[in-house]
Computed example of a mutant assay.
Amino acid sequence: MYKLRGHHLFCLLGYRGMGYSQEYVENMTGLHQTLRNNPKTLILLVKGPDQLCEKFPNSGEYHCQDDRIDERDAVILEKMNLKIGQILSWEEIESHIRKHVIPADIQVVCETCSWRSYGVCEEGIREIHNGRGLRKVE
Rank of each mutant, 00 (worst) to 15 (best):
I87Y: 11
D67R: 15
Q22K: 15
K47R: 13
P49C: 13
E26K: 10
L42K: 00
L88S: 02
Y15P: 01
S89A: 02
N58D: 05
T41H: 00
C53S: 08
R68V: 08
Q22C: 11
L44P: 01
G14L: 01
D66K: 06
N38P: 00
G85K: 15
Q22Y: 13
Q33I: 03
G19I: 06
S59E: 15
L77F: 14
K83Y: 06
R16A: 03
G30S: 01
G17Q: 05
E26R: 03
L88P: 04
P49L: 13
L45T: 02
D66M: 04
P49Q: 13
V75Q: 00
G85L: 15
K79S: 12
Y62P: 07
W90I: 13
W90F: 15
D73N: 06
Q33N: 05
M28T: 10
G19W: 06
M80L: 15
K83D: 09
G60Y: 02
V25E: 11
N58Y: 04
L35I: 09
C64L: 04
Q51S: 11
G17W: 09
G14C: 03
L88K: 07
Q86V: 05
T29D: 11
I87M: 13
N37A: 06
D73V: 05
G17N: 07
Q22P: 12
G60K: 05
N27F: 05
E54H: 08
G30M: 01
K55D: 06
N81W: 11
Y62H: 14
L35A: 11
M80C: 03
G14T: 02
A74M: 02
E54I: 08
E54L: 10
Q65F: 10
V25A: 10
N27M: 06
G48A: 13
E26S: 02
R68F: 08
P49E: 13
M80A: 10
T41Q: 04
L82V: 10
G30H: 00
G14E: 02
T29I: 12
Q22V: 14
C53W: 05
Q22H: 13
E78P: 06
D67N: 14
V75W: 02
K83I: 04
A74D: 09
E23H: 03
G85V: 15
P49A: 15
I76N: 11
M80W: 02
K40G: 05
A74L: 06
H32E: 08
E26V: 02
D50C: 08
H63N: 10
W90Y: 15
P57Q: 06
S21R: 10
G14V: 01
K55W: 04
L35Q: 07
